[in-house]
């Protein structure tokens, strides 16, 4: 049984339907890339997984539980660790406070997050609002890890960051994969960097899953058809 399973998910924002049938599975220890052009439903799919948006039909299951009756905070407790788009750190709290506010017991603690992101370790007493974009992104990932999730969900984790910082974050993600065997669902647009970590890929087009398979078997025809501009 897969850790995360979406089947035939449809969802709307008010009157406008955004998802028309999304299928997606993430197995234990697997890194899945969720891809597609802008506005194809990637973030909406993540909102449905995290129960920030209710799906109208289809089933969403995590760790064997049907998520439909779960409010957002209880779904998170099952082990969904979201790194939201746009980072959204708590800007008036320090780095230390941001991390402690979300801490739950488990392997991940302040020391381990500090080892993964030494930059955070150096800035524990700095306010999150005064961090650079890359540091805020690291904090956002650290905050999700502090909840000791079973799956890490990264929504556009490297968007708008300097190339050096992007590399640092991708390095951290591949370290996570190698050292912990954490399941990861990652939304991103850069195929080259996803190739470093992803086992599988799911491509969305107009709110529907249109391609689903091993990341290596993604070829130019597919990427041109669904991801090219």
């Amino acid at each position: 049984m897969s850790l995360l399973e979406l089947e035939g998910i449809t969802a709307s924002y008010g009157a406008s339907q955004a998802l028309f049938g999304v299928d997606l599975t993430v197995d234990e220890g697997e890194v899945v890339a969720l891809m597609g052009r802008n506005g194809m439903g990637k973030s909406t799919t993540i909102n449905v997984i995290c129960r920030l948006l209710k799906n109208q039909s289809g089933t969403a299951r995590f760790a064997g539980q049907d998520l439909s009756s779960y409010p957002s905070y209880r779904a998170a407790r099952l082990g969904l660790g979201l790194v939201p788009e746009g980072r959204r750190c708590f800007s008036s709290l320090t780095v230390w406070e941001n991390l402690m506010a979300s801490a739950r017991k488990g392997e991940w603690d302040l020391n381990r997050v500090g080892r993964l992101f030494p930059r955070l370790q150096e800035r524990l007493d700095q306010y999150a609002g005064s961090l650079s974009g890359g540091e805020q992104q690291m904090l956002s990932i650290g905050r999700a890890l502090m909840t000791n999730p079973r799956i890490l969900i990264l929504d556009e984790a490297t968007e708008g960051l300097a190339p050096v910082i992007r590399q640092e974050i991708w390095k951290a993600i591949s370290e996570l994969k190698k050292d912990t065997g954490l399941s990861i669902l990652v939304v991103d647009k850069t195929i080259k960097e996803l190739a470093l970590v992803a086992d599988k890929a799911v491509i969305l087009e107009r709110g529907r899953t249109v391609w689903n398979g091993q990341f290596q078997s993604l070829d130019a025809t597919i990427t041109d058809q669904y991801l090219g501009v």
């Binding site: 660790g81 939201p84 979300s102 909840t147």
Partner: peptide, 24 residues
């Protein structure tokens, strides 16, 4: 305490607090 920090966070963004598993 972690309660106080979470309360502070919930004031700023209650949705984000939910996604780390806390009920605002």
């Amino acid at each position: 305490s972690s309660f106080g920090l979470a309360l502070n966070s919930a004031r700023q963004n209650s949705e984000r607090v939910q996604t780390v598993g806390i009920s605002p």
